[in-house]
Design a protein around this nucleic acid. Structure first.
Lengths: 322, 322
DNA sequence: GTCATGCGGTCAGATCCTGTCCGCATGGTC
DNA sequence: GACCATGCGGACAGGATCTGACCGCATGAC
């Protein structure tokens, strides 16, 4: 315990679990003299951490907010909580550039012991689903692993079920993860096909990291979003509908962030949002995300979408029939 | 840069941003010889971090998952992402004991620079709301601050709007935060009233920490949940309805976790859930969380609840009228 | 085989870290 | 206002450490 490095870490850790600590108490815990403790604090302060101290019986040391973020020392439970939070945030696109949560997640996943990862997965599947129709629910763990692989250009292997239902085994070099309308896609260089491919991550199973690093490759398009768009326009999902929202672009964007990428302002104050999905319920689930004070219209020629909507309406109706 | 402590931290940080690093590269970045670098790795390994290394041109150093979680070194964006994730997780009760996210959150909030906290708040309010009727949306930041205060028994001040609409200014010693049916409550010792009080955190404004530590106090009940129940049963919310779900207790619990605390199994395979809220929309929002394959019934004598439901039904109806 | 890389031993000199001793300042309490 | 617990920082000396330089060796990819 007499190594200054260890002490520095333990000190930061202790300061993070309680706000206030008295000198004698800390000195005793670390088995050093109080003088040395003070010197340790000096060192930390030099490193940019703001540690304030107050004399007197209610005083003590305390780590304050400063510009430098101290290393976060978390225990296992907390790590699990953070991982779950980040995965959820990434899945639902809560942060700025969605890539940020992924980056943080990659850091954590890299060092998350296997048993903790299992706990995270277990928790995640018990999570409230995003909305009514059970929804993707997939692949938060896959997302996390892929984020890590993208960051490190590490080749991965997985089984993939194409839209046609055809299964295949893939070996790819992940390039990036891109969200699009409630879904995540992986853009990767498919090694056996020797070409760029797009994968829906909820169709991806049995992901394995290979441990092999690859050279970075240049995407054929300017950026990942562009690639996604061109690749997506070539295919199409089974169900679709047009949702017209009477709100202006700014508000729409503040509200829907990257989920709303496919939408455009057809007239001033009117956003047209073309929504695709593989089940009718998935489409309808969008409706529950709409703010209450926004007028909307729905257009769909598909009788199945229509009947799913009517089913829910009837259910509501029946509930109040009594 | 020649301080071993600094180097240890920077090394951990670097190892977290990329998976692989070559020795010469690291040595150059840290301005030390490769020999010293190796000694640094030895030290880290002694501290329990598993750092593997491979020779050869594709080799390099790499931080692996081990039982000891290394200190998480995050940049500003990542800290924001983590904070948002944790707040969301806490608000929605995604983790084990919901207290875990709060604990992790407290650690982070304690050191989160003010400008970052602002960003977190900004993001949080742009988040997808929990459901249709705009809902609580409150107070993720308040929750975070209170978690910190509870941990440290730090007195706080705030303005509180009672259910009667009466405003008052409070000075309390926070004891614990307890979630209950989509809401969070603060249990605290009210200093001016000289008694235990229960506060709904979405009614709490203008929270200020005082920096004054208090002595821990003994709750009058065995635990916080009990206190909450007895305090809540004394009051009641404006609107209420009974939701009857045809699912068994296990499934219910796996699904709703602590949100469903008020529910009980009235017959085998039937859960009765009494839901309160301050607006009719808030009640209805619960419906959208129900799994699609579960049958439910609703009972409410309240005409307002009924008409809110009908309003949404009509909206759906109208949408498919075309 | 060749190359880039990681590993660990040894040495000497410079650097640091630590505990002890000191007097001082500050905040809360009686 | 006195008292106590606490935090602060200078000085010092002995011991522990850290570092760079040098070495030969092992390993993995091409």
């Amino acid at each position: 315990m007499s190594d200054p490095t260890v002490r520095a870490l333990r000190l930061l850790s202790l300061l993070q679990t309680h706000q206030f600590w008295s000198g004698p108490e800390l000195a005793e815990r670390l088995s050093v003299s109080q003088r040395t403790l003070r010197r340790d604090f000096d060192r930390l302060r030099e490193l940019g951490y703001r540690i304030s101290a107050a004399p007197g019986v209610t005083g003590g040391y305390r780590l304050e907010a400063s510009s430098a973020l101290p290393p976060l020392l978390v225990d296992e439970d907390e790590a699990v909580a953070i991982a779950v939070g980040l995965r959820t945030a990434a899945l639902h696109g809560l942060t700025d550039g969605e890539q940020t949560s992924l980056r943080a997640l990659a850091k954590l996943e890299q060092v998350l012991p296997r048993n903790l990862r299992r706990r995270v997965n277990a928790l995640q599947t018990h999570t409230m689903p995003a909305a009514w129709g059970e929804q993707p629910r997939v692949a938060a763990d896959v997302l996390a692993q892929l984020a890590l692989a993208c960051r490190d250009q590490e080749r991965v292997r997985f089984r993939y079920t194409a839209r046609t239902g055809e299964e295949s085994s893939r070996l790819v070099e992940p390039h990036s993860l891109v969200p699009q309308g409630h879904r995540w896609y992986l853009i990767a260089w498919d090694i056996t096909r020797d070409d760029w491919r797009l994968f829906r991550i909820d169709r991806l199973e049995d992901l394995r990291r290979t441990g092999v690093r690859a050279q970075p490759r240049q995407l054929p398009t300017e950026d990942a979003a562009q690639f996604l768009n061109s690749a997506l326009s070539a295919t199409s999902d089974r169900y679709e509908m047009l949702l017209r929202l009477y709100m202006d672009r700014d508000r729409f964007e503040a509200r829907f962030r990257h989920w709303g990428r496919g939408a455009f302002e057809s007239q001033k104050g009117v956003m047209d949002w073309n929504i695709q999905g593989s089940t009718p319920e998935e489409l309808l689930a969008y409706l529950f995300w709409l703010p209450e004070d926004v007028e909307w219209e729905l257009h769909s020629d598909d009788p199945e979408v229509r009947s799913a909507a009517m089913r829910f309406r009837d259910r509501l109706d029946r509930a109040f029939q009594d």
